[in-house]
Design a protein around this nucleic acid. Structure first.
Lengths: 347, 347
DNA sequence: TTGTACGCGTTATCAG
DNA sequence: CTGATAACGCGTACAA
């Protein structure tokens, strides 16, 4: 059996409770005994047992991460390693551990969350996605269990602490950028409409067009699952139109890659024949040909702030609901070509 | 406070220990009392407290995942979401939870592992990487703590349970494939030599050349950090050679993407002027232009089997050391062109 | 400033 | 088949 607080106490000739207080660095212990106890801990190679501590103190110093369905293509997105990194850093800085749960079906995920929460395995939960009508979210609200969502909650936005980008504005700006380049027939390719982020970006796109006096065309708006196949189908639909768009707002870098590919196979040149702007600015977006103009949403910060705000909420339950908006930034590369109007390049 | 085993006991009019046995589904409890107790649990919405259970039973039903340094570019690799998926599934099937730890520096990672292990937060640990001289690995061995590594351990291969591909053979076959296509000047671009996988693949490459009677050329072997910049520098070095290689074995898909890009910028055509074969077959390898011929190493299976074998080891400490080799498969796409000898395409 | 004693929610041992 | 009772390792009133 491992060395416990009692062993340390015995060696240091103090009571176990004293050792406990030294660990907690209680100010009511004299420096002298602290030194003595610490030396004993050192000698024995003592490490506190988190489990026992959790049971006694009723908190675990761990936060639970809920990932989207692992079968979902979204899961393959480089987005996740990056949020994880942010969450990990935010958690680490506050000495919190990370426990994650996934599942193939929604039901499995839900079960996993219930286990984490009811089993008291974690002090709080971070949802790494946001979709409409989410059972998990409702459950957490009912339980009044501390949680934060990365992305914008589908409803009750005012009551749920969340970390998000202003995706509406980001999409609006992206679209406006295309408009400023002289485009008027602009298409939108989005992912699953169940994801709130898709909706937000769609709305921003529409708003920009409306403000510019460009009428919306339903056939310019397409939704496909993220990634490769999605890209292909989207392109086919778009290309078969009589009046083809000259530019595309694509809701995700990976999907944009797929689209880029399909265009290439069809001999359609990006950006000469078609401009593309997308979102997330994952590492790959600068590795494509042409490199993608993409809206950087600062994924790392999303994770980092999520961890921080969640921990804040855990440690101070009275903390008010917060909405943290991470700034975005348009990264201009080559997929929209040089700025031009009437085919004349502007300098 | 949440509902406990005692509350259930009271309602069902039995002793707490009986409830505990019902939870464990002990065969020594009559069906009648089981029913009665279960009904009470249902009524009260009882969920067992994992923490308390862990303390009493000395096992946590959780496994710890150790990721490589989060600052490392490797971390961005789509490899990780996929192993995670495998691990998650393997763990889930056995009702194990997943706890992860990362860190910016090696020291941080090490600390995290010590916390997990000594803090008794997990029953076993999976290392999601394998590098030379790893402090973490040594520590786990010293502690005789159950663990498994994904990849091949640097040393003591016979004493460490691990899940790996036969990267030596995979690289040999990949190289042989290029040779069979008529190539003789074949370069190798690998990542960090601290990673065992890099070494294995390099050795396989060399073996294939030797067996084919092709002499090794040092200037054909390049090591760069994975990913974009690495690709560029590698290409520059290769291109400036008097006798340029006609084909490249690249140790990672992402790096191959970077290389592909650089070639494109330089006006060098893949596969016409240069063939490329790489490893891992991540989703992106089919999305590049040209789509990459890549060795599929079945990343999901790596994770899945790692979880399974780790859990096996946890639940049966006498389990012998195991080496699990996941089969690989060459996915032929377009980056090596059509098979040809002496410039004549074979059909 | 330190020690004693109890409780956290379970499992496990030992009677019965 | 079931019920007391004692751990598990630590935190914390309360007492000293």
């Amino acid at each position: 059996m491992a060395v416990t607080i009692k062993d340390v106490a015995k060696l240091a000739k103090v009571a176990p409770s004293t050792v406990s207080r030294v660990i907690a660095n209680s100010p009511r212990i004299s420096e002298k005994t602290k030194k003595k106890v610490r030396k004993a801990m050192e000698q024995l190679g003592y490490h506190p047992n988190f489990i026992a501590r959790s049971l006694a103190s009723q908190y675990t110093q761990a936060i639970g991460l809920v990932m989207p369905s692992s079968t979902d293509v979204v899961f393959q997105n480089p987005f996740f390693p990056t949020v994880l990194r942010g969450l990990s850093e935010g958690a680490h800085e506050n000495q919190y551990a990370l426990t994650m749960t996934t599942g193939k079906t929604e039901e499995q995920i839900f079960e996993g969350v219930v286990q984490m929460v009811q089993g008291r395995r974690v002090d709080g939960v971070a949802l790494l996605y946001s979709k409409v009508e989410d059972k998990v979210l409702t459950y957490l609200q009912d339980q009044k269990f501390p949680f934060v969502v990365i992305g914008k909650p589908f409803k009750n936005v005012e009551e749920i602490t969340h970390v998000d980008n202003d995706n509406f504005r980001a999409a609006k700006e992206a679209t406006e950028y295309l408009i400023s380049l002289g485009h008027e027939r602009i298409g939108f390719v989005g992912g699953n409409l169940n994801l709130v982020v898709t909706v937000d970006r769609l709305l921003g796109y529409e708003k920009a067009l409306r403000e510019a006096g460009i009428s919306l065309a339903n056939e310019y708006i397409i939704h496909e699952e993220f990634l490769r196949e999605g890209g292909q189908e989207a392109v086919n639909a778009l290309i078969s139109l009589e009046k083809q768009p000259t530019a595309l707002v694509v809701a995700d870098d990976l999907m944009a890659l797929g689209i880029l590919n399909t265009f290439d196979e069809m001999g359609i040149s990006v950006p000469d024949d078609m401009s593309i702007i997308s979102f997330n600015n994952v590492l790959l977006s600068e590795m494509s040909r042409p490199p993608l103009t993409s809206v950087d949403i600062n994924i790392f910060a999303l994770g980092y702030e999520a961890a921080r705000s969640l921990i804040e909420k855990i440690e101070n339950p009275k903390e008010p609901v917060k909405r943290i908006i991470i700034p975005h930034e348009l990264m201009i590369r080559s997929s929209c070509g040089q700025p031009k109007i009437n085919n004349r390049i502007i300098i």
